[in-house]
Amino acid sequence: MTRVSVCLATYDGAAWVEELLGSVLDQLGPDDEVVVVDDGSTDDTVARVEALRDPRIRLSRNETNVGSVRTFERALGLARGDLLLLADQDDVWVPGRLDAMVAALGERAVVATSVAVLGEPLEPPRWALRAADGPRRALNVALVLVGVRWYFGCAMGLRREVLEVLLPFPGFLRESHDLWLGLVGNLLGPVAHLEEPSVARRLHGSNQTPTRWRSLPTILRARWMLGRALAVAAHRARRRRAV
């Protein structure tokens, strides 16, 4: 049986994907896997992944480019592990990440960690979570809706049972699959917050998560989308408890 599945969406990530996968595979055991779903890369991302020739890597390709949200959704659906960790193609895992997150998932259904920036000291992390805030579920949901709770998919993991509520992603979800996971996690139970960063995020012009403030209309649309997502998550969580 597969213990851990690392879910990775790739798109034109040839410049970084080998470094990311190296930092991931160094921490995985023989019964773990990396589920890579490529979203129609136009560079040699796929060739670089295949060249690693690691049997723990399972590579799939989207027939058409569907965007990162749907690609992560597909990767989660293909995963076979009991524990699922997300990864971004352009980051680097911090040593000890796997053990820390697996231990946290022994207590909680969803885990999120602080995030550092590649090239900067790990402490203090650029995006910090406090362990004491994990049980404050209502506060965490409110801060997600406001846009100041730092849940990054590249620093999150979940138990397989969460997929019952998490999948499928709402059809209107065009971004922020990580915040969708944060909402679901907080509705199902406390999310484990790990203060130590588990990943060093690479900042560049093609980051999926914006590195600068967006326009007010864009922010308002994102808040409305997350409000709708919260309603969907609450409905699914209630339905799951009723079964």
Rank of each mutant, 00 (worst) to 15 (best):
S5L: 01
V6Q: 06
A9V: 00
A9I: 01
T10Q: 01
G13Y: 00
A14C: 12
W16S: 15
E19P: 08
G22V: 03
G22P: 07
D26C: 11
D26Q: 13
G29V: 06
D32F: 05
V37N: 10
T42D: 13
D44I: 02
T45M: 08
V46H: 00
A47R: 14
V49R: 05
E50Y: 10
L52D: 13
P55S: 12
L59H: 08
L59V: 07
N62D: 10
V66H: 04
S68V: 14
T71D: 02
E73A: 09
G77F: 14
G77H: 11
L78T: 05
G81S: 04
L83I: 01
L83Y: 00
A87G: 06
D88Q: 15
D88S: 15
D90N: 09
P95L: 10
G96N: 03
R97C: 09
M101T: 13
V102G: 11
E107V: 12
R108W: 07
A109H: 12
V111G: 13
V111Y: 11
A112W: 03
A112R: 04
S114T: 06
V115M: 07
L118W: 14
E120R: 15
E120A: 12
P121N: 13
L122R: 09
L122E: 10
P124Q: 07
L129W: 14
R130K: 06
R130G: 03
D133V: 05
R137H: 10
L139A: 02
L139V: 00
N140F: 09
V144K: 00
V144A: 01
L145I: 11
W150T: 08
Y151R: 04
G153W: 07
C154H: 03
M156S: 15
L158W: 03
E164D: 03
L166K: 00
P168F: 06
F169N: 03
P170G: 10
S176D: 14
S176K: 12
L179T: 02
L183D: 01
G185H: 09
L188H: 12
G189A: 10
V191Q: 08
H193F: 15
E196C: 02
S198K: 06
A200D: 09
A200R: 15
R202K: 10
L203I: 15
G205V: 13
G205K: 12
Q208G: 15
R212L: 02
W213P: 01
L216A: 08
T218L: 14
I219R: 10
R223V: 14
M225T: 05
L226E: 07
L226P: 11
G227S: 01
R228A: 14
A229S: 15
L230V: 15
A233T: 12
A233Y: 08
A233H: 11
A234N: 04
R236W: 04
A237F: 00
R238N: 05
V243N: 00
V243Q: 00
